[in-house]
Design a protein around this nucleic acid. Structure first.
Lengths: 191, 191
DNA sequence: TCCAATTCCTAGCGCTGCTAGATATGAGAG
DNA sequence: CTCTCATATCTAGCAGCGCTAGGAATTGGA
């Protein structure tokens, strides 16, 4: 009866191969280059196999995004843990957030601008996304004033980071003043 | 010799008709519904005519975005002009910015998240975009501290607004706490 | 060894942005 | 008034997309 176990394992491996291929291709050439045909060629199976694992291309992107949420949460946690002081932690976490988005732009897109629908309805996505959000919240907790509640404050700070990242990436903001803008944001949210 | 003048005029009218049709269709059904075939049907010409006016679909979206920059600048100017005090102006302009984005989501997308390439290289886009940015800058001028320079401060504030809008629109932030988040942002950037 | 169920692939649908080549239109010359 | 030529426009089609129906191959159990 181990045959069934092997099959399930192989199936799981193939599913992971699809996600990895999509991720690699997206990071290397952008999401427009990630077509179902190229993906199928990459995993050395035919196109319809993809649809036995995922409902469609959007679901594949969502799966890639899920991995991204875990990575982002880890990156933020590491930055917070190694910070010298609570105030420095805010700056370090902000820098880590921006660095994550800049180094994996396609991944960040999948997480926060594309694939609107699916992942937020499932179960494991909220876990990792919430973990990242919690890292952000714990980071700013020491600096949030009495007037604001933590959740609202965190969401607004997050929006600031997200805005900086996306506007710069779409060339609406020049790279040039980035450090200064980030400093202004951190400074404004640190008292 | 007025025939040539008439032709040029008709051609300009047709170009405007293309832009308007694209805009209306995008606002009504989203940019995915704006196909070159539907656009051609809308203006009652064949598809290739579109390509005698614009280099491609992206260029059409860019032209729609250009109109949007002018509208946004007007909306911000109106909000600033009617504000009771400098501090109130910051809140009112922020509200106007968000309202603009929420009421014309497809237009906002064309301006700030899609069509990355073209418009920022031409001449007339910077004009209206710069006008909107200048409105924002003049609004926050009274509240910017001595430590920050106006341009950096404005860009960061803008990023905050953009982040709030986009995260809410992609359902990463619930509509619910929007007013509180906007208040936090305005408050943090008003002293 | 044969059957049935599962797995997988071939082929194709309707759509997209875009374009080459043919056709219709209209202005100016004789 | 007619013919010619340039311009404007359309028909038809290409290559690619996401996705799927139906048949072929493979596999496990009787």
């Amino acid at each position: 009866m181990s045959t069934q176990g092997r099959r399930e394992r192989e199936r799981a491996e193939r599913e992971q191969a699809i996600i990895s291929a999509a991720r690699d291709l997206a990071l290397a050439e952008g999401w427009d280059a990630v077509t179902t045909r190229r993906l199928a060629a990459e995993i050395e199976y035919s196109q319809p196999v993809l649809y036995s694992h995922f409902k469609g291309k959007d679901a594949i992107m969502a799966a890639v995004a899920v991995e991204g949420f875990a990575e982002l949460a880890d990156a933020l946690a590491a930055a917070r843990a190694s910070a010298a002081s609570p105030r420095q932690a805010v700056a370090d976490v902000a820098t880590a957030y921006v660095a994550f988005a800049e180094q994996r732009p396609a991944l960040y897109d999948a997480m926060f601008t594309l694939a609107v629908d699916l992942p937020f309805a499932t179960q494991d996505v909220p876990t990792d996304l919430a973990r990242g959000f919690a890292e952000l919240a714990e980071t700013v907790r020491p600096v949030v004033g009495d007037a604001d509640d933590l959740e609202t404050f965190t969401e607004t700070f997050w929006s600031g980071l997200h805005g900086l990242v996306t506007l710069m990436r779409s060339a609406r903001l020049r790279r040039e003043g980035h450090e200064r803008r980030l400093a202004v944001l951190v400074n404004r949210f640190s008292r």
